[in-house]
Design a protein around this nucleic acid. Structure first.
Lengths: 259, 259
DNA sequence: CGTTAGTGGTTCATTAAATGAACCGCGTTA
DNA sequence: TAACGCGGTTCATTTAATGAACCACTAACG
Protein backbone atom coordinates (compact mmCIF):
# COMPACT_ATOMS: atom_id res chain seq x y z
CA UNK A 1 0.00 0.00 0.00
CA UNK A 2 1.42 3.31 -1.13
CA UNK A 3 3.42 2.96 -4.31
CA UNK A 4 4.19 6.64 -4.44
CA UNK A 5 5.44 6.57 -0.88
CA UNK A 6 7.66 3.57 -1.58
CA UNK A 7 9.14 5.43 -4.51
CA UNK A 8 9.77 8.49 -2.38
CA UNK A 9 11.34 6.41 0.34
CA UNK A 10 14.13 5.53 -2.05
CA UNK A 11 15.25 9.12 -1.69
CA UNK A 12 16.02 8.43 1.97
CA UNK A 13 19.02 6.36 1.02
CA UNK A 14 20.89 9.28 -0.46
CA UNK A 15 23.09 11.08 2.02
CA UNK A 16 26.05 13.39 2.12
CA UNK A 17 28.36 10.41 2.47
CA UNK A 18 26.59 8.53 -0.31
CA UNK A 19 25.25 11.07 -2.80
CA UNK A 20 25.29 8.66 -5.75
CA UNK A 21 23.85 5.14 -5.70
CA UNK A 22 23.63 2.47 -8.40
CA UNK A 23 20.48 0.56 -9.31
CA UNK A 24 21.30 -2.79 -7.74
CA UNK A 25 22.64 -1.13 -4.65
CA UNK A 26 19.61 1.03 -3.97
CA UNK A 27 17.29 -1.88 -4.74
CA UNK A 28 19.08 -3.88 -2.07
CA UNK A 29 19.01 -0.98 0.39
CA UNK A 30 15.29 -0.45 -0.09
CA UNK A 31 14.51 -4.16 -0.16
CA UNK A 32 12.93 -3.87 -3.59
CA UNK A 33 13.08 -5.86 -6.77
CA UNK A 34 15.44 -4.33 -9.28
CA UNK A 35 12.61 -3.90 -11.76
CA UNK A 36 10.41 -1.99 -9.36
CA UNK A 37 13.35 -0.02 -8.07
CA UNK A 38 14.14 0.99 -11.63
CA UNK A 39 10.57 2.00 -12.35
CA UNK A 40 10.47 4.10 -9.22
CA UNK A 41 13.72 5.75 -10.12
CA UNK A 42 12.43 6.48 -13.60
CA UNK A 43 9.33 8.12 -12.18
CA UNK A 44 11.40 10.22 -9.81
CA UNK A 45 13.76 11.03 -12.65
CA UNK A 46 10.97 12.20 -14.93
CA UNK A 47 9.89 14.57 -12.22
CA UNK A 48 13.47 15.68 -11.70
CA UNK A 49 13.87 14.54 -8.12
CA UNK A 50 16.43 12.01 -9.30
CA UNK A 51 19.13 12.37 -11.89
CA UNK A 52 21.13 9.67 -13.57
CA UNK A 53 24.81 10.16 -14.21
CA UNK A 54 25.14 9.17 -17.87
CA UNK A 55 28.71 7.99 -17.34
CA UNK A 56 28.46 5.93 -14.20
CA UNK A 57 24.74 5.13 -14.64
CA UNK A 58 24.24 5.74 -10.97
CA UNK A 59 21.57 7.96 -9.49
CA UNK A 60 21.59 11.14 -7.40
CA UNK A 61 19.13 13.71 -6.12
CA UNK A 62 17.90 15.88 -8.99
CA UNK A 63 17.38 19.60 -9.48
CA UNK A 64 13.64 19.52 -8.80
CA UNK A 65 14.61 19.43 -5.14
CA UNK A 66 15.89 22.98 -5.49
CA UNK A 67 12.66 24.19 -7.03
CA UNK A 68 10.56 22.59 -4.33
CA UNK A 69 12.78 24.07 -1.63
CA UNK A 70 12.36 27.51 -3.14
CA UNK A 71 8.59 27.04 -3.11
CA UNK A 72 8.73 25.83 0.44
CA UNK A 73 10.53 28.96 1.53
CA UNK A 74 7.82 31.06 -0.09
CA UNK A 75 5.03 29.11 1.57
CA UNK A 76 6.63 28.83 4.98
CA UNK A 77 9.61 31.06 5.61
CA UNK A 78 11.24 28.81 8.17
CA UNK A 79 10.65 30.75 11.31
CA UNK A 80 6.95 31.09 10.64
CA UNK A 81 6.56 27.35 10.64
CA UNK A 82 8.59 27.17 13.82
CA UNK A 83 6.45 29.80 15.50
CA UNK A 84 3.29 27.83 14.84
CA UNK A 85 4.73 24.66 16.29
CA UNK A 86 6.04 26.53 19.31
CA UNK A 87 2.70 28.19 19.91
CA UNK A 88 0.95 24.84 19.84
CA UNK A 89 3.42 23.51 22.40
CA UNK A 90 3.05 26.65 24.49
CA UNK A 91 -0.68 26.01 24.81
CA UNK A 92 0.01 22.44 25.87
CA UNK A 93 2.67 23.17 28.45
CA UNK A 94 1.62 26.66 29.45
CA UNK A 95 5.18 27.99 29.58
CA UNK A 96 7.34 30.28 27.48
CA UNK A 97 9.47 28.83 24.71
CA UNK A 98 12.49 30.14 22.94
CA UNK A 99 14.18 29.07 19.80
CA UNK A 100 17.89 29.77 19.46
CA UNK A 101 19.89 29.38 16.29
CA UNK A 102 23.62 29.23 15.71
CA UNK A 103 24.48 32.31 13.68
CA UNK A 104 28.06 32.00 12.48
CA UNK A 105 29.68 31.17 15.80
CA UNK A 106 27.33 32.55 18.41
CA UNK A 107 24.07 31.21 19.75
CA UNK A 108 21.30 33.76 19.26
CA UNK A 109 17.64 33.91 20.16
CA UNK A 110 15.62 33.65 16.97
CA UNK A 111 12.10 33.40 18.32
CA UNK A 112 10.31 33.75 21.64
CA UNK A 113 6.79 32.57 22.36
CA UNK A 114 5.57 33.74 25.74
CA UNK A 115 2.83 32.02 27.64
CA UNK A 116 -0.37 33.87 28.33
CA UNK A 117 -1.54 31.43 30.98
CA UNK A 118 0.44 32.65 33.93
CA UNK A 119 1.25 36.07 35.25
CA UNK A 120 4.55 34.76 36.59
CA UNK A 121 6.48 33.82 33.50
CA UNK A 122 9.95 33.88 32.09
CA UNK A 123 10.71 36.67 29.69
CA UNK A 124 13.81 36.71 27.58
CA UNK A 125 15.56 39.47 25.74
CA UNK A 126 15.56 38.37 22.07
CA UNK A 127 18.73 40.30 21.30
CA UNK A 128 20.82 38.56 23.92
CA UNK A 129 23.65 36.26 22.98
CA UNK A 130 23.22 32.95 24.77
CA UNK A 131 26.13 31.89 27.01
CA UNK A 132 27.00 28.26 26.34
CA UNK A 133 27.99 27.52 29.92
CA UNK A 134 24.98 28.93 31.74
CA UNK A 135 21.88 28.00 29.79
CA UNK A 136 20.18 24.76 28.85
CA UNK A 137 20.30 25.82 25.21
CA UNK A 138 24.00 26.51 25.41
CA UNK A 139 24.82 23.17 27.01
CA UNK A 140 22.63 21.41 24.50
CA UNK A 141 24.47 23.11 21.68
CA UNK A 142 27.81 22.04 23.15
CA UNK A 143 26.58 18.45 23.13
CA UNK A 144 25.00 18.28 19.70
CA UNK A 145 26.40 21.26 17.81
CA UNK A 146 29.60 21.68 15.83
CA UNK A 147 32.78 20.58 17.60
CA UNK A 148 34.43 24.01 17.59
CA UNK A 149 32.06 25.17 20.32
CA UNK A 150 33.44 22.58 22.74
CA UNK A 151 36.99 23.06 21.58
CA UNK A 152 37.11 26.75 22.34
CA UNK A 153 35.62 26.20 25.81
CA UNK A 154 38.98 26.58 27.56
CA UNK A 155 40.03 29.67 25.66
CA UNK A 156 36.74 31.47 26.27
CA UNK A 157 36.07 33.49 29.38
CA UNK A 158 33.10 31.87 31.04
CA UNK A 159 30.97 34.39 32.87
CA UNK A 160 29.48 33.52 36.27
CA UNK A 161 25.84 34.70 36.27
CA UNK A 162 24.61 33.10 39.49
CA UNK A 163 25.96 30.86 42.19
CA UNK A 164 24.83 27.87 40.15
CA UNK A 165 26.70 28.86 36.99
CA UNK A 166 29.33 26.35 35.86
CA UNK A 167 32.62 27.92 34.90
CA UNK A 168 35.01 24.98 35.12
CA UNK A 169 35.52 23.47 31.62
CA UNK A 170 36.09 20.02 33.11
CA UNK A 171 32.75 20.01 34.90
CA UNK A 172 31.02 21.38 31.83
CA UNK A 173 32.49 18.64 29.64
CA UNK A 174 31.20 16.00 32.04
CA UNK A 175 27.77 17.55 31.92
CA UNK A 176 27.89 17.76 28.12
CA UNK A 177 28.62 14.04 27.94
CA UNK A 178 25.57 13.31 30.12
CA UNK A 179 23.38 15.51 27.92
CA UNK A 180 24.66 13.69 24.84
CA UNK A 181 23.23 10.51 26.33
CA UNK A 182 19.94 11.94 27.58
CA UNK A 183 19.18 14.04 24.51
CA UNK A 184 18.08 17.04 26.53
CA UNK A 185 19.69 19.61 28.81
CA UNK A 186 18.47 21.54 31.80
CA UNK A 187 19.71 24.52 33.71
CA UNK A 188 18.42 25.20 37.18
CA UNK A 189 19.00 28.84 37.84
CA UNK A 190 22.47 28.91 36.36
CA UNK A 191 21.68 31.90 34.14
CA UNK A 192 19.07 33.66 36.20
CA UNK A 193 17.91 32.80 39.68
CA UNK A 194 14.49 31.19 39.84
CA UNK A 195 14.47 30.13 36.19
CA UNK A 196 14.58 26.48 35.18
CA UNK A 197 15.37 25.78 31.55
CA UNK A 198 14.89 22.64 29.48
CA UNK A 199 16.40 22.45 26.00
CA UNK A 200 16.68 19.99 23.13
CA UNK A 201 18.65 20.19 19.89
CA UNK A 202 17.42 21.06 16.42
CA UNK A 203 19.52 19.20 13.88
CA UNK A 204 20.70 20.25 10.44
CA UNK A 205 21.08 18.10 7.36
CA UNK A 206 24.39 16.72 8.61
CA UNK A 207 22.89 15.65 11.94
CA UNK A 208 24.75 18.36 13.79
CA UNK A 209 22.64 20.78 15.81
CA UNK A 210 21.93 24.12 14.13
CA UNK A 211 20.02 25.45 17.13
CA UNK A 212 17.94 24.51 20.12
CA UNK A 213 14.40 24.72 21.37
CA UNK A 214 13.99 25.53 25.05
CA UNK A 215 11.19 25.72 27.58
CA UNK A 216 11.66 28.19 30.43
CA UNK A 217 9.83 27.50 33.66
CA UNK A 218 9.71 29.64 36.83
CA UNK A 219 11.07 27.71 39.77
CA UNK A 220 7.71 27.61 41.56
CA UNK A 221 6.18 25.62 38.70
CA UNK A 222 9.22 23.43 38.05
CA UNK A 223 7.88 20.47 39.99
CA UNK A 224 8.88 16.92 39.21
CA UNK A 225 5.21 16.22 38.45
CA UNK A 226 5.32 18.55 35.46
CA UNK A 227 8.58 17.22 34.09
CA UNK A 228 7.11 14.38 31.99
CA UNK A 229 4.79 16.77 30.13
CA UNK A 230 7.63 19.22 29.54
CA UNK A 231 9.99 16.53 28.33
CA UNK A 232 7.57 14.93 25.90
CA UNK A 233 6.71 18.34 24.47
CA UNK A 234 10.39 19.10 24.18
CA UNK A 235 11.03 15.85 22.36
CA UNK A 236 8.30 16.31 19.79
CA UNK A 237 9.40 19.90 19.26
CA UNK A 238 12.96 18.77 18.68
CA UNK A 239 11.86 16.38 15.97
CA UNK A 240 9.31 18.71 14.40
CA UNK A 241 11.62 21.70 14.27
CA UNK A 242 14.44 19.57 12.89
CA UNK A 243 12.07 18.59 10.09
CA UNK A 244 10.87 22.17 9.76
CA UNK A 245 14.36 23.41 9.02
CA UNK A 246 15.07 20.51 6.69
CA UNK A 247 17.37 18.69 9.07
CA UNK A 248 17.80 15.10 10.10
CA UNK A 249 17.71 13.63 13.59
CA UNK A 250 20.55 11.11 14.18
CA UNK A 251 19.45 7.50 14.58
CA UNK A 252 21.29 7.35 17.89
CA UNK A 253 19.13 10.13 19.32
CA UNK A 254 16.79 8.93 22.13
CA UNK A 255 13.21 8.20 21.06
CA UNK A 256 11.98 9.73 24.30
CA UNK A 257 13.36 11.87 27.09
CA UNK A 258 13.65 10.55 30.64
CA UNK A 259 13.99 12.74 33.78
CA UNK B 1 1.13 4.28 -15.93
CA UNK B 2 3.15 5.81 -13.15
CA UNK B 3 1.23 6.31 -9.93
CA UNK B 4 4.23 7.76 -8.19
CA UNK B 5 4.73 10.23 -11.01
CA UNK B 6 1.08 11.28 -10.90
CA UNK B 7 1.43 11.91 -7.20
CA UNK B 8 4.57 13.97 -7.75
CA UNK B 9 2.92 15.96 -10.51
CA UNK B 10 0.52 17.35 -7.96
CA UNK B 11 3.46 19.30 -6.60
CA UNK B 12 3.61 21.22 -9.87
CA UNK B 13 0.47 23.11 -8.99
CA UNK B 14 2.05 24.88 -6.07
CA UNK B 15 3.58 28.19 -7.00
CA UNK B 16 4.68 31.43 -5.41
CA UNK B 17 1.28 32.93 -6.20
CA UNK B 18 -0.54 29.87 -4.90
CA UNK B 19 1.52 28.30 -2.13
CA UNK B 20 -1.48 26.69 -0.41
CA UNK B 21 -4.15 24.65 -2.15
CA UNK B 22 -7.21 22.81 -0.85
CA UNK B 23 -8.11 19.21 -1.65
CA UNK B 24 -10.97 19.81 -4.07
CA UNK B 25 -9.08 22.56 -5.80
CA UNK B 26 -5.92 20.58 -6.42
CA UNK B 27 -7.95 17.57 -7.50
CA UNK B 28 -9.61 19.75 -10.12
CA UNK B 29 -6.30 21.25 -11.21
CA UNK B 30 -4.69 17.86 -11.63
CA UNK B 31 -7.77 16.32 -13.18
CA UNK B 32 -7.93 13.65 -10.50
CA UNK B 33 -10.65 12.15 -8.42
CA UNK B 34 -10.78 13.66 -4.95
CA UNK B 35 -10.15 10.25 -3.41
CA UNK B 36 -6.99 9.61 -5.41
CA UNK B 37 -5.86 13.18 -4.94
CA UNK B 38 -6.23 12.76 -1.21
CA UNK B 39 -4.32 9.49 -1.20
CA UNK B 40 -1.51 11.05 -3.19
CA UNK B 41 -1.39 14.01 -0.86
CA UNK B 42 -1.29 11.68 2.13
CA UNK B 43 1.65 9.80 0.64
CA UNK B 44 3.50 13.02 -0.08
CA UNK B 45 2.63 14.25 3.39
CA UNK B 46 4.00 11.14 5.05
CA UNK B 47 7.26 11.71 3.26
CA UNK B 48 7.17 15.38 4.23
CA UNK B 49 7.02 16.84 0.74
CA UNK B 50 3.54 18.12 1.55
CA UNK B 51 2.24 19.65 4.72
CA UNK B 52 -1.34 20.22 5.73
CA UNK B 53 -2.31 23.39 7.50
CA UNK B 54 -4.34 22.06 10.44
CA UNK B 55 -6.46 25.21 10.53
CA UNK B 56 -7.37 25.73 6.90
CA UNK B 57 -6.96 22.05 5.96
CA UNK B 58 -5.20 23.12 2.80
CA UNK B 59 -1.88 21.78 1.61
CA UNK B 60 1.54 23.28 0.95
CA UNK B 61 5.06 22.12 0.12
CA UNK B 62 6.62 20.44 3.16
CA UNK B 63 10.00 20.60 4.87
CA UNK B 64 11.39 17.49 3.17
CA UNK B 65 11.98 19.73 0.16
CA UNK B 66 14.64 21.56 2.16
CA UNK B 67 16.42 18.35 3.09
CA UNK B 68 16.45 17.12 -0.48
CA UNK B 69 17.73 20.45 -1.72
CA UNK B 70 20.57 20.34 0.79
CA UNK B 71 21.47 16.85 -0.42
CA UNK B 72 21.32 18.00 -4.00
CA UNK B 73 23.76 20.79 -3.30
CA UNK B 74 26.18 18.30 -1.79
CA UNK B 75 25.90 15.90 -4.72
CA UNK B 76 25.88 18.48 -7.49
CA UNK B 77 27.02 21.95 -6.57
CA UNK B 78 25.09 23.91 -9.20
CA UNK B 79 27.90 24.91 -11.51
CA UNK B 80 29.24 21.38 -11.67
CA UNK B 81 26.00 20.12 -13.14
CA UNK B 82 25.98 23.05 -15.54
CA UNK B 83 29.52 22.32 -16.67
CA UNK B 84 28.62 18.76 -17.58
CA UNK B 85 25.66 19.83 -19.67
CA UNK B 86 27.70 22.52 -21.37
CA UNK B 87 30.48 20.09 -22.19
CA UNK B 88 28.01 17.70 -23.79
CA UNK B 89 26.66 20.54 -25.92
CA UNK B 90 30.18 21.65 -26.77
CA UNK B 91 30.91 18.25 -28.26
CA UNK B 92 27.72 18.42 -30.29
CA UNK B 93 28.17 21.90 -31.64
CA UNK B 94 31.95 22.11 -31.57
CA UNK B 95 32.01 25.68 -30.32
CA UNK B 96 32.82 27.45 -27.07
CA UNK B 97 30.08 28.08 -24.54
CA UNK B 98 29.79 30.50 -21.70
CA UNK B 99 27.43 30.68 -18.82
CA UNK B 100 26.73 34.09 -17.31
CA UNK B 101 24.87 34.68 -14.07
CA UNK B 102 23.35 37.82 -12.65
CA UNK B 103 25.32 38.63 -9.51
CA UNK B 104 23.53 41.38 -7.62
CA UNK B 105 23.08 43.82 -10.49
CA UNK B 106 25.83 42.92 -12.93
CA UNK B 107 26.07 40.13 -15.44
CA UNK B 108 29.17 38.03 -14.83
CA UNK B 109 30.79 35.08 -16.53
CA UNK B 110 30.37 32.08 -14.27
CA UNK B 111 31.67 29.28 -16.47
CA UNK B 112 33.45 28.90 -19.79
CA UNK B 113 33.73 25.68 -21.77
CA UNK B 114 36.07 26.04 -24.70
CA UNK B 115 35.93 23.81 -27.73
CA UNK B 116 38.83 21.54 -28.51
CA UNK B 117 37.70 20.82 -32.04
CA UNK B 118 38.93 23.96 -33.75
CA UNK B 119 42.08 25.94 -33.49
CA UNK B 120 40.16 29.09 -34.34
CA UNK B 121 37.88 29.56 -31.41
CA UNK B 122 36.42 32.23 -29.24
CA UNK B 123 38.05 32.74 -25.88
CA UNK B 124 36.50 34.84 -23.20
CA UNK B 125 38.01 36.45 -20.16
CA UNK B 126 36.11 34.92 -17.23
CA UNK B 127 36.58 37.97 -15.03
CA UNK B 128 34.92 40.36 -17.44
CA UNK B 129 31.62 42.05 -16.67
CA UNK B 130 29.25 41.52 -19.57
CA UNK B 131 27.92 44.70 -21.20
CA UNK B 132 24.15 44.43 -21.67
CA UNK B 133 24.10 46.41 -24.88
CA UNK B 134 26.85 44.63 -26.80
CA UNK B 135 26.52 40.92 -26.16
CA UNK B 136 23.90 38.30 -26.93
CA UNK B 137 23.86 37.38 -23.24
CA UNK B 138 23.31 40.98 -22.23
CA UNK B 139 20.44 41.51 -24.64
CA UNK B 140 18.93 38.23 -23.57
CA UNK B 141 19.10 39.30 -19.95
CA UNK B 142 17.41 42.60 -20.78
CA UNK B 143 14.57 40.64 -22.37
CA UNK B 144 14.02 37.96 -19.75
CA UNK B 145 15.75 39.26 -16.65
CA UNK B 146 14.53 41.57 -13.87
CA UNK B 147 12.95 44.82 -15.02
CA UNK B 148 15.50 47.10 -13.38
CA UNK B 149 18.07 46.19 -16.03
CA UNK B 150 15.93 47.70 -18.76
CA UNK B 151 14.86 50.64 -16.61
CA UNK B 152 18.39 51.84 -15.97
CA UNK B 153 19.32 51.58 -19.65
CA UNK B 154 19.01 55.33 -20.22
CA UNK B 155 20.97 56.31 -17.14
CA UNK B 156 23.85 53.94 -17.90
CA UNK B 157 26.70 54.90 -20.17
CA UNK B 158 26.65 52.40 -23.00
CA UNK B 159 30.14 51.70 -24.31
CA UNK B 160 30.70 51.34 -28.06
CA UNK B 161 32.99 48.32 -28.58
CA UNK B 162 32.82 47.95 -32.36
CA UNK B 163 31.05 49.65 -35.23
CA UNK B 164 28.17 47.20 -34.77
CA UNK B 165 27.61 48.02 -31.09
CA UNK B 166 24.17 49.42 -30.28
CA UNK B 167 24.27 52.45 -28.01
CA UNK B 168 20.86 54.03 -28.62
CA UNK B 169 18.44 52.90 -25.86
CA UNK B 170 15.49 53.15 -28.26
CA UNK B 171 17.06 50.75 -30.76
CA UNK B 172 18.05 48.42 -27.96
CA UNK B 173 14.52 48.35 -26.59
CA UNK B 174 13.17 47.41 -30.01
CA UNK B 175 15.68 44.62 -30.24
CA UNK B 176 14.84 43.44 -26.74
CA UNK B 177 11.18 43.17 -27.69
CA UNK B 178 12.10 41.01 -30.70
CA UNK B 179 14.21 38.77 -28.52
CA UNK B 180 11.35 38.41 -26.08
CA UNK B 181 9.32 36.91 -28.90
CA UNK B 182 12.05 34.70 -30.38
CA UNK B 183 13.38 33.38 -27.07
CA UNK B 184 17.00 33.79 -28.11
CA UNK B 185 19.38 36.63 -28.84
CA UNK B 186 22.33 37.03 -31.17
CA UNK B 187 25.13 39.52 -31.51
CA UNK B 188 27.08 39.73 -34.71
CA UNK B 189 30.37 41.31 -33.89
CA UNK B 190 28.87 43.95 -31.63
CA UNK B 191 31.26 43.15 -28.79
CA UNK B 192 34.26 41.91 -30.67
CA UNK B 193 34.79 41.90 -34.41
CA UNK B 194 34.53 38.48 -35.97
CA UNK B 195 32.61 36.92 -33.09
CA UNK B 196 29.00 35.83 -33.45
CA UNK B 197 27.14 35.13 -30.23
CA UNK B 198 23.92 33.23 -29.63
CA UNK B 199 22.31 33.34 -26.19
CA UNK B 200 19.24 32.01 -24.38
CA UNK B 201 17.91 32.70 -20.91
CA UNK B 202 18.20 30.57 -17.77
CA UNK B 203 15.16 31.14 -15.60
CA UNK B 204 14.80 31.22 -11.83
CA UNK B 205 11.92 29.96 -9.73
CA UNK B 206 9.87 33.10 -10.47
CA UNK B 207 10.28 32.67 -14.24
CA UNK B 208 12.60 35.65 -14.45
CA UNK B 209 16.04 35.04 -15.98
CA UNK B 210 18.87 34.56 -13.48
CA UNK B 211 21.48 34.20 -16.20
CA UNK B 212 22.12 33.13 -19.77
CA UNK B 213 23.82 30.43 -21.73
CA UNK B 214 25.66 31.53 -24.84
CA UNK B 215 27.44 29.92 -27.77
CA UNK B 216 30.25 31.93 -29.33
CA UNK B 217 31.09 31.22 -32.96
CA UNK B 218 33.92 32.70 -35.07
CA UNK B 219 32.48 34.54 -38.07
CA UNK B 220 33.97 32.08 -40.57
CA UNK B 221 31.93 29.22 -39.10
CA UNK B 222 28.78 31.25 -38.51
CA UNK B 223 27.04 29.99 -41.63
CA UNK B 224 23.27 29.81 -41.95
CA UNK B 225 23.66 26.06 -42.44
CA UNK B 226 24.96 25.67 -38.91
CA UNK B 227 22.31 27.84 -37.29
CA UNK B 228 19.68 25.11 -36.80
CA UNK B 229 22.13 22.93 -34.88
CA UNK B 230 23.24 25.85 -32.74
CA UNK B 231 19.69 26.96 -32.02
CA UNK B 232 18.42 23.54 -31.02
CA UNK B 233 21.42 23.05 -28.73
CA UNK B 234 20.79 26.46 -27.26
CA UNK B 235 17.16 25.65 -26.61
CA UNK B 236 17.81 22.37 -24.85
CA UNK B 237 20.57 24.02 -22.81
CA UNK B 238 18.21 26.78 -21.78
CA UNK B 239 15.70 24.28 -20.48
CA UNK B 240 18.24 21.94 -18.90
CA UNK B 241 20.13 24.68 -17.11
CA UNK B 242 16.92 26.26 -15.91
CA UNK B 243 16.09 22.90 -14.37
CA UNK B 244 19.65 22.51 -13.07
CA UNK B 245 19.40 25.70 -11.06
CA UNK B 246 15.93 24.86 -9.83
CA UNK B 247 14.13 27.37 -12.02
CA UNK B 248 11.01 27.29 -14.11
CA UNK B 249 10.63 28.13 -17.79
CA UNK B 250 7.56 30.31 -18.48
CA UNK B 251 4.76 28.65 -20.42
CA UNK B 252 4.88 31.44 -22.96
CA UNK B 253 8.49 30.64 -23.82
CA UNK B 254 8.93 29.22 -27.37
CA UNK B 255 9.18 25.42 -27.61
CA UNK B 256 11.84 25.80 -30.29
CA UNK B 257 14.03 28.54 -31.70
CA UNK B 258 13.67 29.76 -35.27
CA UNK B 259 16.36 31.65 -37.20
C1' DC C 1 40.76 -18.36 -22.49
C1' DG C 2 36.78 -19.68 -20.02
C1' DT C 3 34.43 -19.02 -15.57
C1' DT C 4 32.22 -16.42 -12.26
C1' DA C 5 30.03 -12.67 -10.25
C1' DG C 6 28.77 -8.39 -10.60
C1' DT C 7 26.47 -4.53 -13.15
C1' DG C 8 22.17 -1.97 -15.63
C1' DG C 9 18.16 -3.04 -17.85
C1' DT C 10 13.94 -5.83 -19.99
C1' DT C 11 9.96 -9.09 -20.32
C1' DC C 12 5.41 -10.79 -19.18
C1' DA C 13 2.16 -13.76 -16.54
C1' DT C 14 0.40 -13.04 -11.90
C1' DT C 15 -1.29 -10.37 -8.33
C1' DA C 16 -2.04 -6.69 -5.53
C1' DA C 17 -2.95 -2.02 -5.32
C1' DA C 18 -4.96 2.26 -7.45
C1' DT C 19 -9.22 4.03 -8.89
C1' DG C 20 -13.75 6.71 -8.89
C1' DA C 21 -18.92 7.11 -8.23
C1' DA C 22 -21.52 7.64 -4.60
C1' DC C 23 -21.74 8.82 -0.11
C1' DC C 24 -21.36 11.31 4.72
C1' DG C 25 -21.16 15.27 7.78
C1' DC C 26 -20.28 19.96 8.11
C1' DG C 27 -20.16 24.97 7.48
C1' DT C 28 -21.67 28.96 4.12
C1' DT C 29 -24.50 31.21 1.39
C1' DA C 30 -29.04 32.24 -0.65
C1' DT D 1 -34.97 25.87 4.55
C1' DA D 2 -32.44 24.36 0.68
C1' DA D 3 -28.56 24.23 -2.14
C1' DC D 4 -23.81 24.32 -2.56
C1' DG D 5 -19.21 23.51 -1.68
C1' DC D 6 -15.87 21.73 1.35
C1' DG D 7 -12.73 17.67 3.38
C1' DG D 8 -12.92 13.06 3.82
C1' DT D 9 -14.62 7.89 3.40
C1' DT D 10 -16.33 3.50 1.30
C1' DC D 11 -16.05 -0.50 -1.67
C1' DA D 12 -16.83 -2.98 -6.06
C1' DT D 13 -14.18 -2.61 -10.36
C1' DT D 14 -10.23 -2.12 -13.07
C1' DT D 15 -5.81 -0.99 -13.92
C1' DA D 16 -1.29 -0.75 -12.97
C1' DA D 17 2.51 -2.53 -9.91
C1' DT D 18 5.17 -6.53 -9.15
C1' DG D 19 9.09 -9.98 -9.41
C1' DA D 20 11.36 -14.30 -11.28
C1' DA D 21 13.78 -15.16 -15.02
C1' DC D 22 16.24 -13.34 -18.48
C1' DC D 23 19.75 -10.59 -21.66
C1' DA D 24 24.00 -8.10 -22.65
C1' DC D 25 27.93 -6.35 -20.85
C1' DT D 26 32.20 -5.58 -17.85
C1' DA D 27 35.79 -6.77 -14.49
C1' DA D 28 38.27 -9.95 -11.83
C1' DC D 29 40.48 -14.33 -11.54
C1' DG D 30 42.74 -18.84 -12.25
Amino acid sequence: MGTALNALKMLEYFSSSQPEIGLSHIARLAGLNKATALRHLRALEEFGLIEQNPQTKSYAIGPAALRLAALREIAKPGLDGARQKMQAAMHEVGESLHLTLLEKDTLQTALVVETTQHSVRVSLDPSEIIPVNATASGLCMLSFGPAFLLERLESDTLTRFTDATMTDPKIIRDRVAQIGQAGWANSNGSFEDGVFGYAAPIFGIDQIAIGTIAIAVPEIRATSARQPLILTSLHTLSKELTANFGGQTPETFPTEFHP
